[in-house]
């Protein structure tokens, strides 16, 4: 009986959103979750990721529809404004719920 229960809980692990679960993307989404929007430079400074690394993670999040990316030209320089989409917000909340569930069930 107990074994079935823990098996069920462990199975939730497989349902966890792997796109968000990756540490760098988790950092990006967590930051965007608590703010309205931010530009590329701010996110880069907060996460400590390199330009290329951040761009690559943002592309994945944008493809999944979790993050909206708006590019504009300001003072002859590219300015990238990032915002968590409604879908991204829901996905993160779902992820957080599942993770709490799993972590809560790890008590002896």
């Amino acid at each position: 009986m107990k074994s079935d229960e823990s098996e069920g809980k462990i199975q939730i692990l497989t349902e966890i959103n792997k796109l968000i679960h990756e540490p760098a993307r988790l950092m990006i989404i967590s930051l965007l979750y608590v703010i309205e929007n931010a530009d590329f430079v701010w996110i880069k400074g907060q996460t400590g990721l390199t330009d290329g690394n951040l761009s690559s993670h943002l592309s994945k999040l944008e493809s999944a529809g979790y993050v909206t990316v708006e590019k504009s030209i300001k003072n002859k320089k590219t300015n990238t404004l990032l915002k968590l989409s409604e879908g991204g917000r829901k996905a993160f909340e779902e992820y957080r719920k599942k993770l709490t569930q799993i972590l809560g069930s790890t008590d002896n």
Binding site: V34, A38, V41
Partner: peptide
């Protein structure tokens, strides 16, 4: 702004 970027904080 060019060094730390721009952020619009949330509800809190």
């Amino acid at each position: 702004k060019p060094r730390i970027g721009v952020v619009k904080f949330g509800r809190k």
